[in-house]
C-alpha cells in the first residue's frame, strides 16, 4: 500500500535527495519554532496582564448593552467605560448607569437609543479591554433586507422609480415579469458597482466620478444581460427582454449603488440592500397592479381617470406601509 510514492508526498529518509532537502528545510523549521515561542510568550504575558476577559457584548434595545466577563469586574463606575459608534469614534455615547448582574455579567445603560443593527466599539479602562460590538452576519443581512424592502420601501417611502412603477403596473402579468427581471438586474449591478467603488474609485480617490461610473456600469450590465439572454435563452429573452431595456432609466437601479457608496457598506450589506430593494419594488408593483386592475372596473370621476387615481392608490399604499416604520427586528 505505502510502497508507491506519489510526487507530492514528503520524501522518506534513505531516498536520494532527502538529506539535502532536510538540510534545506532545517533553518526554516528553526525560525518557525522561534516565532511560535515568541508568540506564545506574548500571549502568556497578555494573559497575565488581563486575566479578566470580555466574553460577549450584546446590544439590548432600546438603550442597554449586556456584557459577559470571564471573571468579576472590579471597577463598575461609568467612567471606566467608553462607548462609541464605529462611524464616529471621537464622540463617546454617555454611559449613564452600570449594573452588576449574576454570573459575571454587567449591564450598561446608555444615554441614547441603540440599534441592534449598528456597529459600535466598547473600550474599558481597567482592565484594558476593547471590543467591536456588531450584529451577527445573519442579523445584519436580515435587518438590511427587510428594512429596505418594507420599512424604507423605495416606491412608497422614498418615492424612487415612480415612472416605471406607474408605467408597468397596469397588468398583473407585466408587473410580475418586471419585478423578477428588476430584482435580478439589481443584485447584479449592485454587486458590480460595489466592487468598482471599493476596489477602484476609493483607492484612486476618484469618488467624484461615482455618478458617471455607476450609470455606465448599469448601462453595461443591462446591455450585457440582454445580449447573453438573447443568445443563450431566446425564450426567456422574448418574455423579459422588453423590461431589461426599461431598467436603465429607472432611478432605483442607480440609487442602490449611490446609497451603498454613501454608507460605505460592506459586500454583505450591499447584497442585502440590492436584494431587498429589488424585492420591495417587485412587491410594490404586484400590489399596485392588483389594485389597478380593479379600478378599471370602477367608476372614476373624469378628471381623475388614468394617472391621478393611480397616484391616489399609491398614496393609500404608502399610508399602509407607514405601519412598518416602527418595526425593529432585534429587541
Amino acid at each position: 500500500m505505502a510502497s508507491r510514492l506519489r510526487p507530492w508526498m514528503p520524501c522518506r529518509p534513505g531516498r536520494p535527495g532527502a538529506a539535502t532537502r532536510a538540510a534545506r528545510t532545517a533553518p526554516a523549521a528553526l525560525s518557525l519554532a522561534v516565532l511560535l515561542a515568541a508568540a506564545l510568550a506574548v500571549l502568556a504575558a497578555a494573559g497575565v496582564q488581563a486575566d479578566t476577559r470580555l466574553l460577549s457584548a450584546r446590544v439590548v434595545t432600546p438603550d442597554r448593552l449586556a456584557l459577559r466577563f470571564s471573571a468579576p469586574l472590579e471597577r463598575t463606575d461609568p467612567a471606566n467605560f467608553r462607548f462609541t459608534t464605529a462611524q464616529a469614534p471621537d464622540v463617546p455615547i454617555a454611559v449613564t448607569a452600570v449594573r452588576r448582574a449574576a454570573g459575571d455579567r454587567v449591564v450598561l445603560t446608555l444615554g441614547q437609543k441603540l440599534s441592534g443593527s449598528e456597529h459600535y466599539r466598547l473600550e474599558i479602562a481597567d482592565p484594558p479591554l476593547s471590543r467591536d460590538v456588531r450584529p451577527s452576519t445573519w442579523a445584519l443581512l436580515i435587518t438590511v433586507l427587510l428594512s429596505s424592502a418594507l420599512i424604507n420601501n423605495f416606491v412608497f417611502t422614498r418615492y424612487l422609480g415612480l415612472c416605471i412603477f406607474f408605467g408597468v403596473s397596469k397588468k398583473r402579468d407585466t408587473s410580475l415579469g418586471m419585478g423578477a427581471t428588476f430584482t435580478m438586474v439589481m443584485v447584479f449591478t449592485g454587486m458590480v458597482s460595489w466592487a468598482i467603488d471599493s476596489f477602484v474609485l476609493r483607492l484612486l480617490h476618484l469618488s467624484f466620478l461615482q455618478i458617471l461610473v455607476f450609470i455606465g456600469t448599469v448601462a453595461f450590465v443591462v446591455q450585457f444581460l440582454d445580449t447573453m439572454l438573447r443568445k443563450t435563452h431566446p425564450g426567456l429573452h422574448k418574455r423579459f427582454g422588453i423590461y431589461l431595456m426599461l431598467i436603465t432609466t429607472n432611478c432605483i437601479i442607480l440609487a442602490v449603488p449611490l446609497l451603498n457608496a454613501q454608507g460605505s457598506a460592506g459586500p454583505l450589506e450591499s447584497f442585502a440592500l440590492a436584494l431587498g430593494s429589488g424585492g420591495g419594488f417587485a412587491l410594490a408593483l404586484f400590489l399596485m397592479s392588483c389594485a389597478r386592475e380593479r379600478t378599471e372596473l370602477a367608476r372614476v370621476p373624469a378628471p381623475f381617470q388614468g394617472l391621478p387615481i393611480a397616484f391616489a392608490l399609491a398614496g393609500l399604499f404608502a399610508l399602509a406601509f407607514m405601519g412598518f416604520s416602527g418595526l425593529d427586528f432585534f429587541r
Binding site: 418615492y159 378628471p303 381623475f304 391621478p308 398614496g315 404608502a318 407607514m322
Partner: peptide
C-alpha cells in the same frame, strides 16, 4: 408632509390640471 400625502397632492393637482384643460 408625510410620504403618502405627496402622492395625494400630485393626484389632486393632476386632476385639477385635467379639469382646467377640459
Amino acid at each position: 408632509a408625510l410620504p403618502a400625502g405627496g402622492f395625494f397632492s400630485i393626484a389632486l393637482l393632476m386632476a385639477l390640471f385635467n379639469w382646467v384643460e377640459r
